[in-house]
Amino acid sequence: MMDSVDRAIINRLQGGFPVSDHPYREAADHLGISEAELIQRLEQMLEKRQLSRFGPLYNAERLGGGLSLCAMSIPEEDFERVAEQVNAFSEVAHNYARDHRLNMWFVLATETPTRIESVLAEIEDVTGYRVYNMPKKEEFFVGLKFEV
């Protein structure tokens, strides 16, 4: 289980990590633990898959890629088949079932913005269902930080 040191690490290092020649030592100093302990705890939390990764969170659009949120309305009896077909696309980053008539929601991340439309067309082709494309128009907040 996670103890108070793990929680302090998670809460602090979601907010940033030093970019310097001794970053782990610097971060460890702030947390009041040794560099070796910080590294070991990060390794363990990664291993237990409590952390997705320890590294950068990129802005896909600024990297020149395409990104969009897409939704589909799939009848229950076809849901499994369509989920498999959609997830088979490497451009589908994550996919959630949600409780609405539009019941399948996935994020599409492509190498170029123009690829979004063509991947959507391919998905419609393969599945036989319409895809509602809802790209971001304006960003009011991205925190994605979780207190533990």
Binding site: I9, I10, L13, Q14, G15, G16, F17, V19, L42, K48, R49, Q50, L51, S52, R53, F54, G55, P56, L57, Y58, N59, R62, L63, V142, F146, V148
Partner: peptide, 14 residues
Amino acid sequence: IIKRLGIVVRHHEL
């Protein structure tokens, strides 16, 4: 281009 550097959590697992 890098929005953030550091821990990216799996919120479900937390």
